[in-house]
Write a protein that binds this DNA or RNA. Structure first.
Lengths: 229, 229
DNA sequence: ATTACTTAGTGTAAAAAATACACGTTATAT
DNA sequence: ATATAACGTGTATTTTTTACACTAAGTAAT
């Protein structure tokens, strides 16, 4: 516990809920802590905000340090400020989420020493988490459940080229319910933000599906219109 | 500027966007500052979070100190963390909004010395605001614009007994557009969360409208259902 | 009491969106 | 050739949304 100038005795941290999709399951990135408190526990990746960076910049830096990824759409969703949420002092944590494309060309960067390892974990079978991270994560899940209805978050989880069935899987996992295939396709195509490619899926052991791309340009033209994916 | 233990050199403040409705206009509560920085400027009411209170508790305390009101639904909506948002040091501000019933029985409490006065100001004609408060306010407006579609925020602005026309006015002011009277009434009544009273409006110079009450019990039963006011 | 005024209160038809629902097609693997 | 497993498609029904205009009722002034 630290005692300082009145009013300037808080620390501010960032915690990131990084969502990933491996084709089957919704995952989040966890680290195994190598330091007290909560040594050996699983936790959300996060770190303290430096004095000379904004909270948003800090989130970008931390994401980069942990994953090597930059230029990722990352959104703040809540500030957690209970008195005893951190055993070593008064730490307010600002939570962000991001949707990451898993697999392929972007292996996770080696972590700083505060973590033994980082691992993608199925959201449906999480270990016990350090601090109030389960709470932070729950709130993050709630947020994306709401936001995926209005924002094209699903495509950020998917590879550049994807099938409609994959898009549907992402929606089903995040919303936690099955959707009707024909109705889903009708709706998602009605926004005209997906471009059908000539190309088909490869390396699958049955009939290959048509690939699509998210057309960011067309999406941006919709700005301001209320759409519901 | 203060220099302290590494990591524990931030202050955290609360800023409140308090919405009010006077029957005609959407208002927010501003204070005129009596202290530097920004002495004599208009600002959102706010204050520093104490070390021994949670951020939510702090918001409740500050609202109470400024208005005398307790037990108000208040919702955090964003944390503002730019480096230079406060000229005297690194202050992260967590913003909350609340909807207040104006007029009648609840005069504003005398303010602490940091403000010369507090005043309800029409959202459509605001003075220049201190710090990044215009930005905080804009984001607050955006939030309630989205949230009023799913949450019964409008009734918190209105007196206990209100007319449907008043409800419609609140929606029109917040959404910034005119709504069709018949369709609005059809829709708002379709949720069955308003109770029609025997009573009529009093003291109006033309035909008196029927009064309604918001039925919180029935609303709570809808929990989880996706409703769109 | 008549009249003028202002807001309250109401219904329907058309269009759009959401839902429920099942089977033939196609690429792969054996 | 055949079996397999996921792909891809259409229609009818219901629900929701939208557009649209007049009569009713209470007040105030003469």
């Amino acid at each position: 516990m630290t005692e300082n100038t009145p009013g300037f005795d808080f620390a501010v941290s960032i915690d990131c809920v990084l969502f990933g999709f491996d084709g089957t399951e919704l995952k989040i990135l966890l680290i195994e802590r190598n330091e007290d408190p909560f040594k050996d526990w699983w936790a959300l990746p996060g770190n303290l905000v430096n004095n000379e960076e904004s909270v948003d910049q800090s989130a970008q830096r931390i994401l980069k340090e942990l994953t090597g990824l930059g230029d990722i759409y990352m959104e703040q969703y809540y500030a957690f400020g209970d008195v005893n949420r951190h055993p070593q002092g008064r730490v307010i944590s600002v939570a962000y989420y991001a949707m990451l494309r898993l697999g392929g060309d972007k292996p996770l960067k080696p972590l700083s020493s505060y973590a033994k390892k980082a691992q993608w974990v199925n959201v449906a079978s999480l270990p016990k988490l350090a601090f109030d991270h389960q709470h932070i994560l729950n709130k993050g899940l709630e947020k994306i459940k709401r936001r995926i209805k209005h924002l094209p978050l699903a495509f950020e989880l998917l590879p550049e080229k994807f099938t409609l069935t994959q898009v549907q899987s992402v929606y089903e996992l995040i919303l936690g319910k099955k959707l009707d295939k024909r109705n889903f396709r009708k709706k998602i195509l009605s926004f005209k933000v997906l471009k059908e490619l000539e190309e088909k899926q490869r390396g699958v052991s049955f009939r290959a599906a048509t690939l699509y791309k998210f057309d960011k340009r067309k999406y941006n033209k919709l700005f301001g219109k209320e759409i519901s994916f």
